[in-house]
Each structure stands twice: as C-alpha cells, then as structure tokens.
C-alpha cells in the first residue's frame, strides 16, 4: 500500500507531471543551460542536490515552527530565504570540501536561487502533504521522495533537450527561428510525447 503511494509520486514527478514539460517550472535554466550535454548534467546534479536538502529543511521548518506558532502566512518569505541562504551555504561547503565538484557545478549553483522549480517543489510538498494544517501519513518521506524525483525529472528533460539542441546547431533554419524560438518548438514536441504518460495509472 505504502509502496504504491511512493511509486505514484515517483512516476508522476518524472513523467506525468514533469516539472519542465508539464508544469513549466524552471524554464529559464532549461533554456539557458541546455545547449550542450556536459553543463546540462552539472546543472541537473546541482538542482537535485539543492532540491533534496531544501525540501527537507522547509518541511521541518513548516511542521515545527510555522504551524505550531500559527504563522503559515510567512511561508513564502521563509522558504525563499531558506533556499537563498542554503544555496550560499552549500556553495561555501562544496568549495571547502570538494573543489572538483565545485568546479563542475561552477556558476550554476548561485543561479539555482532564482530557479522557480526549487521554490515550486517546496510549496508543492506543503500543498500536497499537509491537509488542514495536519501532516498526512508518511508526510516527511513523501516530501523527500517528491523533492528528489522532481529533480530527477528536471534533469531528464534537460538532458533530452540538450541532446537535441546539440544537433540543431548544425541545421539550416529560418533566421528568426534560431536560438530560443526553435528551442520552444522542440520543447513543445517533447512535451507532446510526454503527454502519452498521462494515462499511466496503478
């Protein structure tokens, strides 16, 4: 029973409600970083990392501070501050502990603060797994799974897109479609393909 619940969240986050292709969260990095495969992988890794940890921290904050003191209307301010501080903090720790990883993630780490996918997943966790100010069963574990696999879905879409855009560079197309417009049309076709997962039910 529980397993089914978790599986549903995983499949839904990666395929059915893919953050980029059906929810339109995180489009800016999706268009900015999807020109080559290598930076796309680094960006995906950075996003999964930040999403997982900020998912955990914001859940704990909401459950043990915002809810008991009845200040849930401060949710947006708290969450964005947590994410911003956390990204800064992560940057410092990674720089100290693993310069190689720091070089791979590079400039993508600070960019994540303004990635709406991260704030999006934390708000979704609260919307989905708290009913009337009460945590549902397995709320924490479900939030964690949702945060991780939202990141995985984001990375998947980024990789697919960068693979296609690498080839698009060589193609001949009308001048006005070069760059962003053609990227949108490609994204539209991928998203059309992903709609096929819509009928997926357990």
């Amino acid at each position: 029973m529980e397993l089914k619940l978790f599986l549903t969240v995983i499949i839904s986050m990666i395929f059915i409600n893919n953050f980029i292709l059906s929810k339109f969260l995180g489009l800016c990095p999706f268009l900015g970083v999807s020109r080559n495969i290598k930076p796309a992988i680094s960006m995906g890794a950075a996003v999964i990392f930040v999403m997982t940890l900020s998912g955990i921290i914001t859940w704990l904050l909401y459950r043990f501070i915002l809810l008991p003191f009845n200040i849930t209307y401060l949710r947006t301010i708290t969450f964005i501050l947590v994410i911003a501080t956390f990204v800064q903090f992560a940057e410092m720790v990674i720089l100290k502990k693993s310069p190689i990883l720091y070089r791979t993630l590079g400039i993508y780490l600070p960019l994540i603060t303004t990635n709406c996918a991260v704030l999006g997943v934390t708000v979704l966790n609260i919307n989905n797994f708290f009913v009337k100010g009460q945590a549902v069963a397995f709320s924490f574990a479900l939030s964690l799974v949702q945060s991780v696999f939202a990141g995985v879905g984001f990375t998947l879409a980024l990789l697919l897109m960068s693979g296609i855009r690498e080839r698009l560079e060589l193609n001949d197309m009308p001048e006005c479609f070069k760059g962003i417009p053609i990227a949108f049309l490609v994204a539209s076709l991928i998203s059309l393909a992903f709609m096929g997962f819509n009928g997926f039910r357990f």
Binding site: L21, S22, F24, P174, E175, C176, F177, I180, P181, I182, A183, F184, L185, A187, S188, L189, S191, L192, M195
Partner: peptide, 21 residues
C-alpha cells in the same frame, strides 16, 4: 495543454524576431 503553450510562445518570439530583422 502544455505543448500548445510552448508552441505559441515559440512562434510569437519568432515573429517578433522577424519584425526586428
């Protein structure tokens, strides 16, 4: 649905580029 949104925006930006060019 989602694909329609991406398509519409892509085409609108292309038209905008065309006019600019």
């Amino acid at each position: 649905l989602a694909p329609g949104a991406l398509m519409t925006l892509g085409i609108l930006i292309a038209i905008n580029n065309l006019i600019k060019n």
